[in-house]
């Protein structure tokens, strides 16, 4: 049997983590192919409903990453994101989503190696947790309901 290859979406901000991931590339540090990045202007822009959408569309894991506290290009977007994450975590619990499936982190534009570490460790965690289909099923059902 082939090994389970998780699908992981990374929601990152343009100024810190996206640039940090660029540096991982420039430094030629290798990491797993499972993580694919979507670029946002700021973590403050990340509507956490998008995370649910990603699970609904079949993601097995998610990374949210932006600037360190006080480093936000827009001064405080990352603080809003952090507060939102704290609220959202409770909601995930209620929905029965294992919060280990979401990795929330800070990676600056200078932390190329850290980005590779986060990708690899997230892939490892999600691999251990196995494929995630529960939420997709619920979401798929709900969508059908709405249509009918």
């Amino acid at each position: 049997m082939t090994e389970f290859e998780p699908k992981i979406v990374a929601f990152v901000c343009n100024w810190c983590t996206y640039a940090g991931a660029d540096l991982t590339g420039t430094s030629r540090i290798k990491y797993a192919q499972n993580v694919k990045i979507i670029r946002f202007p700021c973590t403050g822009r990340i509507d956490f409903m998008l995370l649910l959408k990603a699970f609904g569309e079949g993601a097995d894991g998610i990374i949210v990453s932006g600037c360190h506290p006080n480093d936000c290009h827009y001064t405080s977007g990352n603080f809003h994101a952090r507060r939102r994450w704290i609220m959202f975590r409770g909601l995930l619990d209620l929905l029965g989503i294992d919060i280990r499936r979401i990795q929330y982190s800070w990676v600056s534009a200078a932390e190329g190696a850290k980005w590779a570490d986060i990708v690899n460790s997230t892939v490892k965690t999600i691999r251990e947790l196995g494929p995630y289909t529960d939420y997709a099923k619920v979401a798929g059902y709900l969508e059908k309901e709405v249509k009918e």
Binding site: F40, P41, C42, G44, R45, S76, G77, H80, R84
Partner: peptide, 28 residues
């Protein structure tokens, strides 16, 4: 920065270049 977009409960505010529609379609 788009912070407002993520805050709006009625999805009334959106940001050019990183609109809700665009971000959802990217995820999908």
């Amino acid at each position: 920065c788009g912070t407002c977009v993520a805050f709006c409960r009625s999805k009334s505010i959106d940001i050019d270049g990183y609109s809700n529609e665009q971000m959802y379609s990217e995820v999908m």
